[in-house]
């Protein structure tokens, strides 16, 4: 398969839009069976949630994996409590972008700022967060840059620590900014179904 640019992949996908709850919700169904769902704030046009779901090789439907946004840990979690899950006192990792930068927040990290070190690994194209007290370690990539095949830039990375939260920011490059604006324009053209309950097909 020839390397297809991300915008072409997006264009070829089947999109469904819905305006609900003050959010513009878009569902993408890609040709390879993967699904992506995005939610944008209607007023500020900020990306609130982006999540992925795909089937495993055997055909089992996976659960939604969040790329951007906060998971809604609700009563569903207690259903699976037979197994293992992370304690609530552990650091919580989430991504929440701003207009100009990708941003990751790790809550529940009560160590002083000088414990943390954040660096870029160019060979693996990821950001690494380390702690000198060996309590927290995280390796993650920037899917947006990977999809558009853009290089990583050391100077774009910065981090702050306040209120038990470590905030890592990476300034969005020019290409991403223009791409996101174009995408948003396209998405606004999509006819979203009217606000309110959508007719749900029952069997």
């Amino acid at each position: 398969m020839a390397v297809q640019s991300w915008s072409d992949v997006l264009k070829s996908s089947k999109k469904t839009a819905l305006i609900h709850d003050g959010k513009r919700k878009i569902h993408y169904l890609f040709t390879d069976g993967k699904e992506m769902a995005e939610e944008y704030d209607l007023k500020t046009d900020e990306l609130i949630v982006r999540k992925w779901r795909h089937k495993s090789t055997l055909g089992v439907q996976g659960s939604w994996l969040l790329e951007v946004g906060e998971s809604l840990a609700g009563p569903v979690a207690s259903l699976e409590s037979d197994m293992i899950k992370e304690n609530s006192s552990n650091p919580v990792f989430m991504r929440k972008d701003t207009k100009t930068s990708f941003q990751w927040r790790i809550r529940n990290l009560s160590y002083p700022k000088d414990v943390f070190s954040v660096s870029l690994d160019h060979s693996e194209r990821c950001i690494i967060i380390k702690t000198s007290n060996k309590k927290y370690y995280k390796k993650f990539n920037i899917p947006d840059l990977d999809r558009s095949q853009l290089p990583l830039d050391d100077s774009a990375l910065s981090f702050t620590h306040a209120n038990n939260t470590l905030i890592v920011s990476y300034k969005k490059p020019e290409e991403i900014l223009t791409f996101e604006q174009e995408l948003l324009k396209e998405l606004k053209k999509l006819k979203g179904s009217a606000e309110g309950d959508v007719d749900c097909k029952t069997q």
Partner: peptide, 9 residues
């Protein structure tokens, strides 16, 4: 590098 606490079912 790190340490995590898990709740067990």
């Amino acid at each position: 590098e790190m340490e995590t606490i898990y709740d067990l079912g």
